[in-house]
Design a protein around this nucleic acid. Structure first.
Length: 844
DNA sequence: AGCACGCCGACT
DNA sequence: GTCGGCGTGCTC
């Protein structure tokens, strides 16, 4: 084994494949599959990952260069994670390096740094003579001698440091390297706790810059534009290089040229993150399980004991005690000397949540959430890698936790969309979890009170082409108390009866009662879909697309309504097309407005408001919840974040201001999301001794998602929703691939998007795939579009998208990738960008 | 993505 | 001529 295949850190199409390197004898003991190495690549040194090891081939080694260095004592990736990476790049059509890098903390994204040292003095005779001759002709200047002395003293010095010591020495240093007096080498350096961005600042006064601008040679047009832009932005300096490149459509080389001229400076500025502080936790012991929990527990533990892969869908109503199941199955997993991952949606990864795991498993728990600084995240990661932790609780990316004896992966609230990463690689943690577990013989528990239709349908149909989890049900609450009474209030009637407030009479009365009794209220305001859809306040009419059965999005600029799926557009109506009322308007209410109205209606009421505005600060989330728990507030008012996982004994009322706002998003999952949210938030009421009450306000109270949520009837909801999905050909009856093309020039983009769609059609025809989705027993592929994207222009680029719907066992992703790459090649100007989102969650 | 190479237009 | 901007192609 003398050769390694390495994936190098260059996220481009041409380099998206392994490169072969020789392994020097002295590095051999340190190099494994998963090692992070520094390799020479072209004219520079890059970070890369070893994906396989091979015996040295007989020939063909001429081009091969040796690995330069090994960057870690323990390989940061295991062979298992390398395999997950191979799978990800196929599954999500992403770059191999992006898949690998996404598994690691950003601290481990090393970049080459240039170093200078004195050149080797014991050269052979010929070159010594040659060099002596040269030196005789060119006596060393004062500056040259200073530089050589400086380098000599340090042994080796980074180029950055050297140029700081000799600000005007760049040319001299270059010359000394050219003459063989100094030599340059590169080494990979981790950026550890620093997250940086390139910041641009003027190096001279704006007057001087303006003067320089005037005397610019005519050919340096690009640089002129850039400098002009920087001068315009003078008051906002420093600005990010990345933004500037995007805005002006220039390359980094142009900016660098300005920096070399000394007009601007480029600096790596640290992007700061808030630290996470640990706390003390009182230990807890396993609770006695109810009959229902026992059954579920046994099924999972049997699988664990077999040490075989298996997937469970744990459908348990709110308050059924899913967390206790998690804790006890983890316990079993740990007893087997295996490790466990607990995935939690970012939004509910609160200290309260973490506390339950720390209380049971103490120091063996590592926590990974997005508010950690890169350094802290790296520390937690090392705790796992080095075996000091055997349980990790974390958001999406914790699915890559570097355990070597993984036994169990738990995904709480498995229906949450935050498990899908919206940036490349656009992976879904559920799919990664299942695939990873299948490699290691680990069990997976997908837990939810409202499972995603994909998971539920897979469990019910036991389909062979997709994962088929075993369904486990927990229909009753662990403490034996009943699910809360839910009342639906028709807000159209309120308006008809002259109540123009955002609070119905029922909700008003219910809040009054809580205030009198000293009990607490949670108010949910669903801000999703804020101001985007048009609705009639008299009859509840919502403008929908005639083709797609999806609500239209209001566009203020053009004052029209558009369908994000098929491109249909219509003039925004002045009066309701259904009832003729003038009370038609685009919809949305902010938490601030609700807070003001609460203060008006209930003088002296203490409101704790929780939304993006009040929770950005570190620890504020926790602080607000603590205030509420300590009964320093009568009402907790907030967005989605109040719906998840909160458990306060004195909350006996939950109010939903408008249930419809998520319902009217241009998203085929709108009903599902509404049902899930209402069910979640209703579960916050009456979790303990006091009985709970829920008031849902709605303009479409007859909608099945609202009706079924009010009767806590998941099964009926699923039945209704599946009917719609089947009729309109949406998941789980097919799968989707969303392809977004972007380019600076609109006509070019449109033509290329049409070419793309046509190529998909002809290529899938050729393979015999193209066909009707109406036949549910047959493989089929259909393409919709191209249409303008919901965000038609982003950062100076126009965007068009195509939606591919497909069903069957064929590899549709690779077809899409193939066609996308062909198109990119034929579009000789490389400015076309193509993004592929496999199984998209967000369609807007 | 960078970085070198090389073509080509503007200036000493 | 030659300096430097900017497009092109390659990286084991």
């Amino acid at each position: 084994m003398e050769m390694a295949r390495v994936i190098v850190d260059v996220p481009s199409k041409d380099t998206d494949r392994p490169f072969d390197y020789l392994i020097p004898e002295d590095l051999r003991p340190w190099i494994e599959v998963g090692s992070r190495v520094g390799v020479p690549f072209g004219h520079r040194t890059l970070q890369g990952f070893v994906v396989s090891l091979h015996p040295r081939p007989e020939m063909d080694t001429a081009k091969m260069k040796p690995i330069q260095e090994v960057l870690d004592v323990m390989p940061p990736l295991s062979p298992e994670l390398i395999e997950v990476g191979e799978w990800m790049k196929e599954r999500y059509a992403c770059r191999h390096i992006s898949a690998l890098q996404s598994m690691l903390p950003t601290a481990l994204k090393g970049k080459a740094e240039r170093y200078i040292s004195l050149a080797h003095s014991d050269m052979d005779m010929d070159s010594t003579e040659e060099a002596d001759g040269l030196f005789a002709l060119l006596p060393e200047s004062e500056l040259e001698q200073q530089i050589i002395r400086f380098v000599g003293q340090k042994g080796e010095v980074s180029l950055q440091q050297l140029s700081r010591a000799f600000p005007d020495g760049a040319a001299t240093i270059k010359a000394l390297i050219g003459r063989g007096r100094l030599s340059e080498f590169q080494q990979i350096k981790d950026k550890l706790q620093k997250k940086t961005m390139k910041a641009i600042e003027l190096a001279v006064s704006s007057e001087e810059a303006s003067t320089a601008l005037a005397s610019f040679p005519a050919k340096a047009q690009r640089q002129k534009e850039v400098l002009q832009y920087i001068l315009e932005m003078e008051d906002f300096l420093p600005i990010s290089q990345k933004d500037l490149l995007q805005t002006l459509g220039v390359t980094a080389g142009t900016v660098k040229a300005l920096a070399d001229k000394g007009l601007i400076t480029l600096e790596d500025v640290e992007v700061f993150r808030d630290p996470y502080r640990g706390r003390n936790f009182t230990p807890s012991t396993p609770l006695a399980l109810t009959q229902e929990q026992q059954v579920v527990y046994r099924s999972i533990v049997n699988k664990l004991d077999e040490r075989e892969h298996g997937v469970f869908l744990l459908h348990g109503v709110t308050g059924s005690g899913k967390t206790e199941i998690y804790l006890q199955t983890i316990q079993r997993c740990l007893e087997q000397e295996r490790q466990a991952i607990v995935l939690v949606p970012e939004i509910s990864l609160t200290p309260q949540m973490v506390e339950r795991f720390k209380a049971r498993f103490g120091d063996r728990v590592a926590v990974m959430h997005s508010r950690l600084s890169d350094g802290e995240r790296y520390d937690e990661w090392r705790k796992i890698r080095e075996g000091r932790a055997s349980v990790v609780v974390g958001a999406r990316s914790a699915v890559f936790a570097p355990f070597d004896r993984l036994g169990l992966i738990i995904m709480d609230e498995e229906h949450e969309t935050s498990y899908k990463q919206e940036e490349t690689p656009k992976y879904h943690a559920r799919d990664v979890a299942i695939h990873r577990a299948s490699l290691t013989g680990a069990a997976v528990i997908l837990g939810s009170a409202t499972p995603s239709l994909e998971s539920y349908h897979a469990a019910k149909s036991q389909a062979q082409d997709h994962f088929a989890p075993q369904l486990l049900e927990m229909p009753s609450r662990a403490l034996g108390n009943r699910l809360p009474e839910v009342q639906i209030v028709d807000m159209r009637e309120e308006l008809r009866d002259g109540n123009r407030s955002m609070f119905s009479r029922s909700l008003h009365a219910a809040i009054t009662t809580r205030l009198e009794r000293g009990e607490q209220t949670v108010l949910l305001l669903n801000r999703r879909g804020y101001s985007t859809f048009v609705m009639c306040r008299s009859c509840g009419y919502v403008a929908g697309c005639p083709e797609c059965d999806i609500s239209l999005t209001y566009h203020q600029k053009s004052n029209n309504l558009r369908c994000h799926y098929c491109g249909y557009a219509a003039q925004a109506p002045e009066v309701c097309p259904d009832c003729g009322s003038e009370h038609i308007r685009y919809f949305g209410t902010g938490t601030q407005r609700v807070e003001e109205e609460l203060a008006k209606l209930f003088p002296g009421i203490r409101v704790i408001r929780m939304d993006v505005d009040t929770t950005t600060e570190k620890g504020s989330h926790e602080k607000l919840l603590k205030q509420f728990r300590d009964k320093k507030g009568d009402v907790l008012l907030g967005t989605q974040m109040v719906a998840k996982g909160l458990d306060f004994p004195d909350v006996t009322l939950v109010g939903v201001i408008t249930a419809d706002s998520a319902l009217n998003l241009p998203d085929f999952r709108a009903a599902e999301k509404t049902f899930q949210l209402l069910t979640q938030v209703a579960g916050r009421a009456g979790r303990h001794q006091l009985p709970g009450e829920v008031v849902i306000q709605s303009y479409t109270p007859e909608h099945y998602s609202i009706i079924h949520a009010s009767s806590h009837d998941y099964l009926s909801f699923v039945k209704d929703e599946l009917k719609h999905r089947k009729a309109l050909h949406y998941p789980p009856y097919c799968r989707l691939i969303l392809v977004t093309l972007s380019h600076e020039q609109l006509p070019l983009l449109v033509r290329m998007a049409e070419n793309f769609a046509a190529a998909i059609k002809s290529e899938s025809d050729r393979r015999g795939w193209f066909g009707s989705l109406d036949r549910f027993d047959a493989s089929a592929l259909d393409i919709l579009g191209p249409v303008a994207s919901p965000i038609p222009r982003l950062k100076n680029r126009y965007r068009f998208q195509c939606m591919i719907k497909w069903r069957g066992t064929m590899d549709a992703v690779s077809l899409v990738r193939l066609v996308a790459e062909k198109l990119q090649d034929s579009a000789r100007d490389s400015k076309l960008q193509i993004s592929i989102d496999v199984d998209p969650q967000m369609l807007m």
